[in-house]
């Protein structure tokens, strides 16, 4: 992930970093605006899961790994994601 191949002069990891920063600001702004409710919560959760997958796939380097070790972060994000989403759904 950290190779020198670039897009618009930036390494892939730098693009991922910029996406992560942007998604974080979006999450923060949602909180600052006081937005609440099931839909907003699930969207914020989805954004967090995407950020997590980006870290696992690109930063941790699991995107290049074949076989069983390609999946642990995806599975880890999937299980708590489903549980948290279900709990917020039941609480709404």
């Amino acid at each position: 992930m950290s190779g020198k191949k670039t897009t618009l002069g930036l390494r892939p990891c730098t693009w991922v970093y910029l996406f992560l920063m942007t998604f974080t600001f979006v999450t923060f702004l949602v909180g600052q605006m006081g937005l609440s409710g099931l839909t907003v919560s699930l969207l914020i959760l989805l954004l967090a899961l995407i950020k997590g997958e980006l870290v696992g796939y690109y930063f941790m380097g699991l995107g290049r790994v074949k076989g069983l070790w390609h999946w642990p972060v995806f599975i880890w994000l999937f299980i708590p994601g489903i549980l948290i989403g279900t709990a917020f759904y039941l609480a709404s």
């Binding site: 999450t27 923060f28 914020i44 870290v55």
Partner: peptide, 11 residues
């Protein structure tokens, strides 16, 4: 990355 939205933002 999961803790931040869960504890500080989602409501």
């Amino acid at each position: 990355l999961i803790l931040f939205p869960l504890v500080y933002v989602m409501r």
